[in-house]
Amino acid sequence: MPILAMVGAVRSISSCGEGGEGAAMLMTLVVVCVVSGALLLGAAWGLYGRLPKVWEGFLIALAGGALIYSLIVELIEPSVQTSSLSLAMASVFAGALVFTGLDYLVDEKWGSDGGGGLLAAITLDGVPENLALGVALIGAGAPEVAALAGSIFLSNLPEAAGGAKEMGENNRSKGKVMALWAGAAALLSAAAIIGNVALEGASDELLAITRCFAAGAVVASLATEVFPKAFQEDHHLSGLATVLGLVLAYALASIGG
């Protein structure tokens, strides 16, 4: 709800006169900062607060359910309407294929515990999410943006908390851990801004390909990274949490018609 109010307020400014373009960019920057800031909040939570495993799994599953809805309604469906079903589905599959290949390299070749591999593991599923967010901000209304931004925010928060907690337990200083997550937040913010600025004025087909490619990568990350982790931490309630996330995303997107 705070994300919806924030987006709606800036969007209303963007509709007024000559300041519309600047206000639209302001909306992009504010939403990106809030979503990427969840990484820093989550990292601080994991390092300095308490994060029971059950709650971690519940929140991750809830975020995954919200992302399922947002990916279909805010990214895939609009792409099918503006391009074609075959192009959209091919782009979804391509995104999943690229994510799977990179995920394999992180896990099997680079090692997720190493420096570069660890940073890659942190940002691998976040880059497509934030790229999709940046593209979704192009010409979107407040409810649509709020649904996707809220889903990504919920996804980033427990993911960062769990990751930072594990890194702190592996004899890394808290300062270095926070610096690493700050770097990841900067990279993800850049992905969202690039997605928004570079593709402003792009053709409907190019936007459709980008949206569906990002959606496919995120779906693959849900299947291989998010839901298995949620089930491992909270296998009794992970299914209910997933459904709850989907319902909340639907309710959020429905606000304002």
Rank of each mutant, 00 (worst) to 15 (best):
V31S: 01
V31D: 07
V32M: 11
C33T: 03
G37M: 02
G37H: 12
A38L: 07
L41P: 04
G42M: 03
A43R: 01
A43F: 05
A44E: 10
L47E: 07
L47P: 06
L47C: 08
Y48W: 15
Y48R: 00
R50P: 02
R50D: 15
L51G: 01
P52N: 12
V54M: 12
W55I: 13
W55L: 05
W55S: 07
E56W: 10
G57P: 03
I60F: 02
A61M: 08
A63I: 04
G64Q: 00
G65V: 06
L67N: 07
L71K: 00
L71Y: 06
I72D: 10
V73T: 06
E74K: 11
E77T: 05
E77S: 12
P78M: 05
V80F: 12
T82G: 00
T82Q: 12
T82R: 14
S83A: 15
S84V: 04
L85A: 11
L87A: 10
A88V: 09
A90H: 13
S91R: 08
V92G: 03
F93T: 13
A94R: 01
A96I: 01
L97T: 15
L97H: 10
F99R: 08
F99N: 09
L105R: 10
K109V: 14
W110C: 05
G111Q: 10
S112D: 13
S112N: 14
G114L: 10
G115R: 13
